[in-house]
Design a binder for these strands. Structure first.
Ligand SMILES: [Mn+2]
Ligand SMILES: [Mn+2]
Ligand SMILES: [Zn+2]
Ligand SMILES: [Zn+2]
Lengths: 143, 143
DNA sequence: TACGCAAATGAGAATGATTATCACTTCTCG
DNA sequence: CGAGAAGTGATAATCATTCTCATTTGCGTA
């Protein structure tokens, strides 16, 4: 059973456009990014619809929440098999998958204090190789 | 120079009460937790004042932000020397300091993709030893 | 192919945490 | 004693996200 953007849910003109925008952006995005990307396209979509589409895409596993930026939730197209985390470039939004650092290291809280970890959040922010290079050349560029 | 709840800032009846509440709780707390804890005490404080006090306490390093719970920021009295992270008991709010797992493991994003990490978030949620024990005994005991 | 209806849409209201205002009150210090 | 800086608090403003509800639409089925 192939993973589609919306799982087994119904499709629509709006949802198609939204999924296209996700592919087009090809990096971490916020709901607002989608709303803007869609505004000038063939089919607009109300804010509520975009929020619902993002929820559906996340539920079906087609996108993942990868962090937050300025109070807005960050998502990305990042099909996840095994448990992993994300490195998000704060300049261009490129998202890399990283292994979970908690599996390798014996967790001090776990071994020293008998703490049972049931959930954890690990998110890295920084610059991808491309953006490091362009920072060397240009002085001040966006974000 | 001793670290005081409000750094070099002025003190007040309200701020004293707020700092007391932090010590009294002795676990992770939200701003709302403080507001409630103070309500019935000798000196109340407006919500805005509590928010400002929490900011001041965080700035002075007397408390730290240790995560979030249901959309509300979580803080704790956790004097931090070296870089570290937190394990927060989702049952009682106990906060443990944990070593940073990113320093031990060679970060795959860093070595494999040339990604430069400039910031990261690591927060563990789970059950402290005490709460694990009480879960074995009692069946359902609230959040 | 025509129906029926659950699912989707969207404009706008509601929520809820956090921040900003602004008119006081209270320290601090010379 | 002032003057000015800092703190207070009721209230309004932000702002991302969710909810409402009347209306439309996709799609399985007869
Ligand atoms: Mn992923
Ligand atoms: Mn700490
Ligand atoms: Zn760390
Ligand atoms: Zn506990």
């Amino acid at each position: 059973m192939r993973i589609t953007p919306y799982g087994r849910a119904r499709t629509s003109r709006q949802r198609d456009t939204i999924a296209e925008a996700v592919e087009l952006i090809g990096a971490a995005f916020t709901v607002d990014d989608l709303v803007c990307a869609i505004r000038d396209r063939r089919a607009g979509a109300g804010v509520a619809t975009v929020y619902r589409a993002v929820s559906a895409m996340e539920e079906s596993g087609w996108i993942e929440r990868v962090g937050s930026r300025e109070g807005r939730a960050l998502y990305a197209r990042c099909r996840g098999g095994a448990h992993h985390h994300h490195a998000v470039c704060t300049s261009c939004g490129t998202v890399l998958a990283t292994d979970c650092p908690l599996e390798a290291a014996a967790l001090s809280a776990e071994v020293e204090h008998g703490f049972t970890v049931t959930a954890h959040e690990v998110t890295l922010y920084g610059l991808c190789r491309t953006c490091q290079v362009s920072e060397n050349n240009a002085a001040g560029d966006g974000d």
